[in-house]
Amino acid sequence: MNKLTVHFTLNQQSIRLETLAARSLLDVLREDFALTGAKDSCGGDGECGACTILLDGEAVNACLVLISQVEGRHVLTIEGLTPDGSLHPIQNAYVQAGAIQCGYCTPGMVMATKALLDHTPQPDETQIREALAGNLCRCTGYTKIVQAVQFAATELHHDN
């Protein structure tokens, strides 16, 4: 198995990484950078969204990105959402809405929400449900998650 060197930006930091090439971004984040916010739940099928991160601002499943594919790109994980690790308004909305139970899906949900609100600051409920349809949750039934996104949209709108 061959190695390669990848240059990318990870949570605003420039990274030069020499690694075995046939690894997913998810494995690299979790194993090499100890960024364990992105989770594996479906086993790399792209069916659960628990490993959602932003790649050049777009929500993607980190399990379906090969590390070579991030060359020259910007990777944002849940750990980089705020510079000081304080609560981002989206995270705060999830907390306040009671949208977090076991929390395993939460980092992926929050990142999918971030991508949605970056592109569509005031989504309607259908747009929210569509944007989160790739993120499975087994605890909440999604109601409070949708409410959290609505809170966050309002909050971010007021801030701007």
């Binding site: 379906l64 990105v65 090969l66």
Partner: peptide, 26 residues
């Protein structure tokens, strides 16, 4: 390897013949 949304899950399930050299076209 384009978007990887089919080939990578396929490789994880061993449903794609080996050996494989992935050509990253990103």
């Amino acid at each position: 390897l384009a978007g990887g949304t089919d080939i990578l899950p396929g490789m994880r399930k061993n449903s794609i013949g080996k050996p494989i050299t992935l050509i990253d076209v990103s």
